[in-house]
């Protein structure tokens, strides 16, 4: 049974890259930290990711990108999220992201960017502190 208080996270692997060690480790760490985690598997398009996030009613989308394609992929995801009015969903990006790309990604709506060497704990804490409160439930 899903616990309504649990934070729900979609861990997604967009683009052509198949290096999924980080995505899998993070998925497990968030699960161990008591969150509900849905891992999409590989090669997800922006559409697939946003649809999965809507279906699964998640609080957080974590995108794992190591290939350098983040500038093309991330704004597409955040744009689709805007269209779907998913303003309450936190977007995080983890992977090999050069410093110079960070301002544009933040401007596109990414809340947290985690570069190589970030500890699992840092990410867990970031989510706990920044996840947006759920809408008033009946």
């Amino acid at each position: 049974m899903a616990n309504e208080n649990r934070i729900r996270v979609l861990v997604a692997k967009p683009g052509l890259d198949g290096h999924d060690r980080g995505a899998k480790v993070i998925a497990r760490a968030l699960r161990d930290a008591g969150m509900e985690v849905i891992y999409t598997g590989l090669r997800q398009t922006a559409d697939m990711i946003v649809n999965a996030a809507l279906q699964e009613d998640v609080d957080v989308i974590g995108l794992s990108i190591l290939s350098g394609a983040h500038n093309a992929i991330v704004p597409r995801v955040t744009e689709l999220m805007k269209q779907q009015k998913m303003d309450d969903v936190l977007v995080l990006v983890g992977g090999i992201i050069p410093d110079q790309d960070i301002p544009a990604l933040k401007a596109a709506g990414v809340s947290g960017i985690f570069q190589p060497g970030t500890s699992m704990d840092t990410i867990v804490q970031f989510i706990r502190e920044n996840v947006k409160p759920r809408g008033v439930t009946a």
Partner: peptide
């Protein structure tokens, strides 16, 4: 599918 990936890796 190649958008943003060409020549990167």
């Amino acid at each position: 599918f190649a958008e943003g990936e060409v020549g990167k890796c």
